[in-house]
Design a protein around this nucleic acid. Structure first.
Lengths: 211, 211
DNA sequence: TGCTGATTAGACTAAATGGTCAACAATTTG
DNA sequence: CAAATTGTTGACCATTTAGTCTAATCAGCA
């Protein structure tokens, strides 16, 4: 059931379904898409859908975990490498966000924002399991921000502050800007994000010392 | 059709439908609720629904405008009165947000966030008219922030900055925090919003002078 | 009172949707 | 090849949903 440990037919239908679900709920919204839509986009029949998943919600949970493991975590591990200066980690990250959003905008004419934020805001009050998965991934992602802020503070790269509060502001500002850029369909907003973040973090003028 | 100018029956069914639609899409999500749900909550039969509105989207547009005219605008006019110190306008506003969100949390056990943000993030890519209405209301609301920032700057209440950029940060930070508090179902986050905003705006230490 | 137009009730239709099932296909192992 | 295991198919069902239509009600006015 979990893996093909030696026998049976092979297939990537499960992956295609997860990708289709993420893409569709990103382009439209979780509530707007149906299981039929997902199957059609994935090129998979409904019977197969129910062979792999119990429901749309079940698929969404799996898709989020897959997204984290295969895309977000590797990217974040690289961008937030300890070998990179703390503030640089953040600006690198923000530039990659901008690049990705701009690419999607170029392709489809729409700024789509953060798939997990949009999904999370839609389902938290209704779907416990899915909401919990969203929160879990948020938590994982936040740790990268936390250590970057702590490192920046330790290296004297930014003005003294309460790191917990700063991380909360940082995450909210990033999410807020990305959300606005989706609602306004305006890529420019995300482009200005790095400077907004630096303004929030108050880097020390010249200090780029290493502890 | 618009008003009972002299004859016929009177009814508040239209208002009840708008209120029900807003409440339900706030508690759950726009995509998750059906016309039947709205009718049931409003205590109105479907025949009456289609007498007043063409579709769920049409109702939503009307409900947003109604919300603005009858709730948001009056409240913002009071909170952002020019007779109030600029920074105080913002903190008053944020406290009222906290109070309202806390009340809803107490009543239903859930932090519901900003109804227009949630709705906006859900529909921008799909429903042009509804998206446009959301953007319109955002624009109106932003003007209150803009003049507060400009006034604060003119009075020397905050450190010099680019007002346009500051307003963008301000709005994004507020929306971001409220969104997070919905996703995390955590009222505390909104409670910390005033101090986060003040940190962002950098009020001058003692200066509360008037020009 | 009875007229007039606003509003309501609720039955009805067609389509969309979630979900099931049993037969069929591919792939590996013995 | 045959069994065992995994994946696929498409028909099928019950329910939900958006949307329509007609007859009935109601409020104010002449």
């Amino acid at each position: 059931m979990v893996n093909n440990l030696g026998m049976g037919r092979t297939s990537d239908a499960k992956e295609r379904l997860m990708a289709a679900a993420l893409d569709l709920s990103w382009e439209q919204s979780y509530g707007a898409i149906t299981i039929d839509d997902i199957c059609q986009r994935a090129g998979v029949k409904k019977g197969s859908f129910y062979y792999f998943f119990d429901s749309k919600s079940d698929l969404a949970v799996a898709a989020l975990e897959h997204l984290w493991v295969h895309e977000w975590k590797p990217a974040l591990d690289a961008q937030f490498s300890s070998s990179v200066e703390p503030l640089r980690r953040l600006t690198d990250y923000l530039e990659s966000v901008f690049a990705k959003q701009s690419a999607a905008h170029f392709k489809g004419g729409k700024i789509l924002g953060c798939p997990i934020c949009c999904l999370g805001s839609e389902v938290t009050t209704q779907d416990e399991k899915l909401g919990a998965k969203v929160r879990e991934i948020f938590g994982r992602k936040r740790r990268y921000f936390e250590s970057a802020i702590r490192d920046a503070l330790a290296e004297g790269a930014i003005e003294p502050c309460d790191p917990a509060e700063k991380v909360a502001s940082l995450a909210a500002l990033i999410e807020g800007v990305i959300l606005q850029s989706r609602i306004m369909n305006d890529p420019q907003l995300i482009g200005r994000l790095p400077s907004m973040i630096l303004d929030l973090l108050r880097p020390k003028a010249l200090a780029t010392a290493k502890a």
